[in-house]
């Protein structure tokens, strides 16, 4: 095991990321090398030597974070969570009432369809006469029979 390898394992030993087998191998390497032992002592000392950061976030950091979150929230998310189930319940109720009204309508679905067909038959197209006249005129052009200027 070379020095780089031992150094990596010393780092992993500190974080508890070595397997049992690796720990045994490292212990053997430490027993055999004074350089490895010194490296390990330096690493332990390093953690102890570093002064902790004494600075703190601003006292009003939390309200500021909350304010930023509110400002960046999408409009759809501004509904209080309690509104969503209420909205769903109203929609479901409207659907149920609609279905009930439709089901109890006199004549039902079939009756409505028959009435619609009858209505369609009664209906006459106001443009139909004009289309027929235009058709006659075009067929007159196609035929060899002469026609008066008044017909145009």
């Amino acid at each position: 095991m070379n020095q780089t390898h031992v150094e990596r394992w010393l780092l992993l030993e500190q974080t508890g990321e070595l397997s049992a087998r690796q720990r045994r191998q490292l212990a053997a390497a430490l027993a055999a090398s004074s350089v490895a032992r010194r490296g390990r002592a330096e690493l332990c000392g390093l953690a102890a030597a570093i002064p902790p950061v004494t600075a703190q976030p601003a006292a009003d950091a939390v309200p500021r974070i909350a304010a930023r979150l509110r400002a960046r929230q999408k409009p759809s998310l501004t509904f209080p969570p309690a509104w969503k189930p209420a909205l769903a319940a109203v929609a479901a109720l409207a659907l149920l009432v609609g279905l009930r009204v439709f089901r109890y309508q006199p004549g039902g679905y079939g009756g409505s369809a028959v009435a619609a067909v009858a209505e369609e038959e009664d209906w006459t197209d106001p443009l139909e006469a004009e289309f027929a006249e235009l058709e006659n005129l075009i067929s007159g052009f196609d035929s060899d029979e002469p026609f008066g200027i008044t017909e145009l």
Binding site: R38, A41, E42, C44, G45, L46, A47, A48, A49
Partner: peptide, 10 residues
């Protein structure tokens, strides 16, 4: 100075 670290104890 780095070598002094080995004398420090956590």
């Amino acid at each position: 100075a780095y070598r002094e670290l080995q004398d420090l104890r956590p």
